[in-house]
């Protein structure tokens, strides 16, 4: 399970500071004024789907998944995961953070074990933790602390920690931010393989159009703030995806670039 339904979801923030009104800052708002971040978002994420969310910087992508994950409250609208209202964070839906989501005072092993810490059977627990550490290729680094690992290894450790819980939904908020290009590409591949294997619902935020188009089962593009759904397309192309071989995919890439305001696709 991992079926997410979002209907008419709105989110307003109360502006806490007055921004100076200048010629090129039309969106400046007064203190105390309501600032609409999400505007009547309607979306449905199916069980086992990998959905990539794209949008201009600051449009409210992160706000949306933080609301779905239960870290923030919605202003109005409906939000159901497997038919249940979201009331707060839950270990059924694990969030993979942009960076430094690992607890730095715990080893990889201890971090990965957070989700199963209440499991009674020690042998079973250890086996499970080891299984996922092996899956993300961190065997041999169980007793390293996060600061002793590279950025890519830290992301993989966090992924292992999330998977150990066997969550219904995985939230990934630009999980590859700050990784070098090669590591990013490898991590994409690993996520795709992992997703083929586990078939969890993954909501993946990125600002990298190629990344979204190569990874997602579906791509959702948001508008500028207040964010609305601008484009919502299924990508029924097999992996590995190659832009130079698929005319449709290449066309879609151009469309997405245009939707995001870049008119001469590179």
């Amino acid at each position: 399970m991992g079926h997410v339904i979002i209907k008419d979801l709105c989110k307003d923030y109360v502006e806490r500071r007055a921004a100076p009104r200048t010629a090129n800052n039309h969106s400046a708002v007064d203190r105390g004024q309501q600032l609409r971040v999400l505007d009547q978002v309607d979306l449905e994420f199916h069980d086992g789907e990998l959905v990539c969310i794209l949008g201009p910087s600051g449009c409210g992508k992160t706000t949306l998944i933080r609301i779905i994950a239960g870290f923030e409250e919605k202003t109005s609208g409906t939000l159901l995961i497997d038919g249940k209202q979201v009331k707060g964070p839950s270990s059924e839906n694990i969030f993979v953070f942009q960076h430094n989501g690992l607890l730095p005072w715990m080893t990889v092993w201890e971090n990965a074990g957070l989700g199963v810490r209440k499991m009674g059977n020690e042998a079973e627990k250890a086996e499970r933790i080891q299984e996922y550490i092996d899956i993300v290729n961190l065997s041999g680094f169980e007793h390293h602390y996060p600061h002793q690992l590279s950025g890519g290894m830290q992301r993989r450790a966090e992924l292992a920690r999330a998977l150990v819980v066997n969550p219904e939904v995985l939230f990934m908020d630009e999980p590859f931010a700050g990784l070098d290009y090669l590591t990013r590409v490898k991590m994409r591949e690993e996520i795709i393989n992992m997703h083929e294997y586990f078939r969890k619902t993954i909501i993946f935020i990125t600002h990298d159009i190629e990344e979204a188009l190569t990874m997602g089962d579906r791509v959702v593009v948001f508008t500028e703030r207040p964010a609305k759904v601008k484009l919502n397309v299924s990508l029924e192309y097999p992996h590995p995806r190659d832009f130079s071989c698929s005319v449709d995919l290449e066309q879609l890439r151009r469309t997405v670039y245009e939707e995001l305001g870049v008119h001469h696709a590179l």
């Binding site: 870290f71 964070p89 839906n93 715990m106 957070l114 810490r117």
Partner: peptide, 26 residues
């Protein structure tokens, strides 16, 4: 870092666990 409290909430830490596994080591 408030992120650590979010991790704690995500993994359903009890208040006691939040103190012993997050606040104190942090």
């Amino acid at each position: 870092n408030s992120l650590y409290f979010q991790v704690a909430a995500n993994f359903n830490f009890s208040p006691l666990e939040t103190v012993s596994k997050v606040i104190f080591p942090a």
